[in-house]
Amino acid sequence: MIKEINIKDRKAAEQVLSVQLPAYKIEAEIIGYPDLPPLKDSADALRTTGETFFGYFTGEKLCGAISFKEKNDVLDIHRLIVHPEHFRKGIAQKLLNYIGRRPIIKKMIVTTGSKNTPAVAFYLKNGFKEVEMIKINDLLTITAFEKLL
């Protein structure tokens, strides 16, 4: 079941962090960049992001989450995370589909590590187009994607 997460609630933020850290640890391994900023997040940091969070739950257990900010008619995805125990179960797809149905959204945007081939393939498969590659430093490049709705 997908439901909104009150990220300002400390327990909820800790629950999201318990999915985020192992998910981004896998991304860091895939792209060869162990210093990913989301690995440094705390529950308090999540509580103050200003992002809207939705989670995919099995019973009371959070298995995946998506967060975003909306401005005008653009939905900016900030994180799409699935706990590694729940990879390849369609959870990321369900979360993306869920937020894609929000009213008055004309475009979705997202960035991911350019070397994160599973994420890049996921966004391309879902109709996102690559719009820019951004070199953060010598070890990290991110790719920006957009999808017009």
Rank of each mutant, 00 (worst) to 15 (best):
I30M: 08
I31S: 07
I31W: 06
G32D: 05
G32E: 10
Y33S: 03
P34N: 10
D35S: 12
L36H: 11
L36Q: 12
L36R: 09
L39V: 07
S42N: 05
A43K: 09
A43Y: 05
T48F: 04
T49P: 05
G50C: 04
G50F: 03
E51S: 04
E51T: 00
T52M: 08
F54A: 00
F54K: 10
G55I: 08
Y56F: 15
T58N: 14
T58E: 14
G59W: 08
K61Y: 00
K61A: 00
C63W: 02
G64E: 01
A65N: 06
A65G: 03
A65T: 07
A65W: 02
S67A: 12
F68R: 05
E70W: 01
K71E: 13
N72M: 06
N72K: 13
D73V: 08
V74L: 13
I77H: 02
I77E: 02
I77Q: 08
H78L: 08
R79V: 08
H83C: 03
P84Y: 07
E85N: 13
H86M: 01
A92F: 10
A92I: 12
L95R: 12
L96V: 13
Y98F: 15
Y98Q: 04
G100R: 02
R101Y: 01
R102S: 09
K106V: 02
K107A: 07
M108H: 12
I109S: 13
T111V: 09
T112W: 10
G113E: 11
G113S: 09
N116E: 12
T117S: 14
P118L: 09
V120G: 12
Y123H: 01
L124H: 05
K125Q: 12
N126T: 03
N126I: 04
G127C: 01
G127D: 00
K129T: 07
E130K: 15
V131M: 07
E132M: 01
I134G: 00
